[in-house]
Amino acid sequence: MKKNYQNIDELFADWMMGKRTDKDIKMLLYEDEFVHFKKLQKSIEIWSELERPLTPEYQKILFKIKKAPSKPKNKIFKLAMRVVIPVAAILLLFFGIEIFNDFNVSIQTAYGEQKNIQLPDGSEVILGSHTSLSYNKKTWQKKRELNLQGQAYFKVTKGQKFLVKTKLGNVQVLGTRFEVVSRKDIFNVICFEGKVAVSSLQNEMVLLPGKAVLIIGNKVQEQTVDNDKPDWFRGESNFENVPLKVVLVELENQYNIRFDTTKIVVNQNFTGSFPHNNLSLALASVFKPLNITYQVKDNVVKLFNRK
């Protein structure tokens, strides 16, 4: 340091916080000290870039994977299929369709659609947008078990155990009302009545009425709910202090859109709601309060931080 004007570390901190310009410190420092300052500044920039969460990159990769056509199967499989399909066709001819009807029931909803269904035991299910559900009609009386991908509300009649299986975890109940959401890496279970046992990849727990659990990746967040039914029944989605990511996934599944989040940091929380029947209003009500701007092209929505 040319002059003992002030402690050099103090000067560094002042400069990094923008209280002093490059020109200011150049007057006070020798050339090599100035270069050292610059090197430290650049290292901190690199550090903040290397240490930041890579969730946006992961989403980008997932998006690319999902967009790509299904993976090419290997040769042996192709060869096998060349044999299997004709054989199956001949068998079908001989034995009729009967044996292939294994009583599997599978129901899907399109983007923006809701469907009410009744299960063989009288339990009711309301499927949310872009959801699929399947169960076996034949074994249902013995085993109340179904597979779910997406979002659904259940009103279960009392009886034997009732099991909802999803990719991210299972939910088991006796007789009660509850909602399950299993999309991407988001697993959300809300209990409205009775007791619900949740077992996910991460943990196991029991939910009481008015309680919910939101699991994203390996983060587990417990929540309380004060409504008696899911709000998507009323054609809107409500959120209270949930990670923005959850809201984005919900929007994607409601409107058949995809988000490009490479330009923003998705670590903020969102409180608010969006309607299910108006995309531009939905986007505005989520992103305006968060100070995020967006561009819609085809069905991809690109997000930017407002400068």
């Binding site: 050099i8 570390d9 103090e10 560094f12 901190a13 002042d14 990094m16 916080m17 430290l40």
Partner: peptide, 9 residues
Amino acid sequence: MHQALKSFK
């Protein structure tokens, strides 16, 4: 923040 930068240096 100022303290952090100072201790860092």
